[in-house]
Design a protein around this nucleic acid. Structure first.
Lengths: 223, 223
DNA sequence: ACAGTCCTCCAGAGATCATTGGAGGATGAC
DNA sequence: GTCATCCTCCAATGATCTCTGGAGGACTGT
């Protein structure tokens, strides 16, 4: 029968949809978009049990959205490709544009009553600034995520260490901060903190997730 | 607590994912991408009960992916925007690229052992051909879907009527056929049928769904 | 008012999913 | 070998989703 084949096709398709249909799994995808990570690290950061995280990762793996790599006793998960990050970004954008609930939840989380979107730097602008060496690019994510993948030319200054680096940054020229992505508070916080110190830092539009989704180059390891 | 707000944000986001997480709902989205339709018509075409279809449509509506319009006793559903079609297309593409199961199910449904992708016309090529009046563009979908939205300049020749129109098409110049989208067999069938009559018809890459997702103009009503 | 159509809501049964703890497999250090 | 670590698998519970029929709401035509 013809419609059997059709139903089977949609069944297979829905596997991907289902994988994106759980808040926990979306959180894992968001973290995986920062770079590869172990199960334990993902579970700890996302605040869920190891077995729970593992189970969700299996679902993502079954949908072929993530791949694994074993190193010793650890298993590293990573997104299966930039197109997965791209799909996730597209879904977030649609959700945000279509649903007032989502925008409200986002504003509540980012703690932005209005928009403090002065001092946004686009990806194109950043590229130009980096080429000319006219910018100090600060990655405020945890070292773990920085090591797993960052924008070439950035230096890692985790939010907690920002206070200690204020003087170094004061003498730098233009400062641009970024973090995980547009659903991440860390760069907002960093700009606020630096602003309190009299340093007019700006924020990169979005963050690592969207950088990766755009297919831009990613560096791994230290420096 | 900060992570409460974060969890709430991901809960809201997952509503969209969940909406795309059911084969039946995906089938409805595919049909809705053709143009607005009533619940009864959707249920009949997709082969599900009215109450089932209505329930699934409620889920899509709750996720703000579709909108409704009442006309007399009928309720017309339509996609909330082209970005929804775009998201669906992106999801299909990822699923197809990532999952061998999906490609296999697709090939089984389309009945293509290899690829008979000779005679594909890109959207850009079609645009050029239409501007020069050098093409007869045939929409082989059911009249209902043609009326709800079609490519400007196309004429509706449903698959079942194709036999009766063979002579008219034989005297036409270049013939290009299209249907719902890349997961739809009708244009494949049409090209095969016309080929059997000695008419070298070509197929538009993809179909109405992708046309809409690309934000290209859509005409409604007759002719 | 009344009947007819189209749709949504409700309630219940069955299926599927999420989470949890515990068992066990794979690997590395010793 | 033994132990420790990291992860996956299994089993069981409770939660959620799906589908179905029936009731009822909204609207039209007479």
């Amino acid at each position: 029968m013809d419609s059997d084949r059709r139903h089977h096709l949609f069944d297979e398709l829905a596997v991907v949809g289902k994988a994106f249909g759980s808040p926990k799994r979306l959180e894992l995808v968001e973290l995986l978009a920062q770079g590869e990570r172990t199960v334990e690290s993902l579970a700890r950061t996302a605040g869920m049990g190891m077995t729970t995280a593992s189970a969700h990762l299996q679902v993502l793996k079954l949908a072929n959205l993530v791949r694994t790599r074993r190193d010793g006793t650890k298993v590293y998960y990573r997104l299966a490709g930039d197109d997965v990050a791209e799909l996730y970004v597209a879904m977030r954008r649609v959700a945000r544009e279509r649903s007032a609930d989502v925008s409200r939840a986002l504003e509540a989380y980012l703690n932005l009553p209005g928009s403090d979107e002065v001092g946004l730097v686009s990806r194109a602008d950043l590229k130009r600034l980096l080429e000319r060496g006219e910018v100090t690019l600060v990655d405020v994510r945890p070292p773990e995520e920085y090591l797993a993948g960052h924008i070439p030319g950035s230096q890692n200054v985790p939010l907690g260490d920002l206070g200690a680096q204020v003087e170094q940054l004061r003498s730098a020229g233009a400062v641009v901060a970024y973090c995980r992505g547009s659903f991440c508070v860390m760069a907002h916080d960093a700009v606020r903190i630096l602003g309190g110190e009299g340093i007019a830092a700006r924020r990169l539009e979005d963050g690592m997730l969207e950088w990766r989704a755009a297919g831009l180059p990613v560096a791994a390891g230290a420096s």
